[in-house]
Design a protein around this nucleic acid. Structure first.
Lengths: 206, 206
DNA sequence: CCTTTAGTGACACCGGGTGTCAAGTGTGCG
DNA sequence: CGCACACTTGACACCCGGTGTCACTAAAGG
């Protein structure tokens, strides 16, 4: 019983070290750019060796885009919580609201936007970001397939992937448009516009 | 006039060297995997040094995914050739037919499929593939925006990106489904199914 | 107090990628 | 013919991201 927190004790310091590294790295990235910053510099700035850095992050990339892994589970949960009889397109729109909370988080919003800018302007990171999003989609595709009826879980049915992919395309489009806008409208507004330009066909029922 | 081919002379040997490298590399990749094959091995197998390899390809990745650059221009041209009054969704569907010709190309089809498999199974390459596709989409988005009327070229209008992104999502979905299928239907059939599940809203005309 | 165990740093190493330089291979021109 | 020039190549050294190894330290636990 005395060992009610056998893992947290070590795990918590681990998290602290990770956030510390992330914080230090962000400053260096905005000052020197992503490619212009070496792992040695980040590690040194955090008072540790390169080798130790790689014990906290599997790669330099993961320090930046690792946080997107949380999205996957959060979105999957959010989708599960939608009523089963709700139109899929509407459910997906609501799932994206989960993202908005993250954007809304204000005391770190400037920092997050700076990191997003780095991801967008660094091809290598952007590529990995897209791949992560693709993985998130995979999680949702399975659930959407379940709602599509009997043929749903057939991997050779392209419809679930098409629907989820289209929804993410709308999110991506809204994201890009919102960044290019004067921010007088909310991201949610852009998301609505984007997703309203697309409709799902009446299900062939067959 | 006698110098009617001043650049081709060198450029042609360059192309030859590139295709030779690509061919050799493909064999090594299928035998040892992508990560298990070093640039030194590829270069040696083609009878050159590592340094020379990087004069023909900017990176190891580009040897594999470089060919996708051709897609961008081909698709853009294909879209330009569609009648201006054709529904955009239909135009995009026809543009994807351009891809089919490539798949149809038979005397190298097995080889191409093997490379596609490598791209799909190597996260690093898959990420770069997605990024390339994103760039292709950018080319098409501009053109689609032009067709959408006055607000079309406004970068803060998410609709063009949403439409193009959705179309590519369908292509991706069809691709994945077709690979998982028994190939009794054509890829075009899957593309039709995927794209028919999605409709564009009536333009708000505003 | 002593043993075990996790975390760490130092070091060597690998592979992708680049800069540099010197040697080779033409190609044109005097 | 021979020289000069541009271009290509190979060899070498180097940087950086990432990994395996090992010895050290410090805390947990008997």
């Amino acid at each position: 019983m005395s060992e009610s927190t056998p893992l947290p004790i070590r795990e918590r310091t681990r998290r602290l070290a990770q956030t510390e590294l992330t914080s230090v790295a962000q400053d260096l990235f905005v000052a020197q750019g992503y490619d212009g910053t070496t792992v040695d510099q980040i590690a040194a700035a955090a008072g540790m060796s390169k080798r130790t850095f790689f014990r906290y992050f599997p790669s330099k990339d993961d320090l930046v885009i690792g946080k997107y892994d949380l999205f996957a589970d959060r979105m999957a949960e959010a989708l599960d919580e939608r009523p089963a009889d709700e139109p899929i397109w509407e459910s997906l729109r609501r799932v994206f609201d989960t993202t908005l909370d993250y954007v809304q988080d204000d005391y770190q919003r400037a920092r997050n936007e700076a990191m997003d800018e780095i991801v967008r302007s660094t091809p290598q990171l952007y590529a990995r970001y897209l791949e992560k999003m693709q993985r998130v989609q995979q999680l949702l595709i399975g659930r959407v397939a379940g709602r599509l009826g009997a043929r749903g879980d057939d991997p050779s049915d392209p419809r679930p992937a098409a629907i989820v992919g289209a929804a993410f395309a709308c999110m991506q489009a809204a994201r890009q448009a919102w960044f290019a806008s004067d921010r007088s409208d909310t991201f949610g507004d852009y998301l609505d516009v984007a997703m309203k330009t697309i409709q799902l066909s009446e299900r062939p029922t067959a």
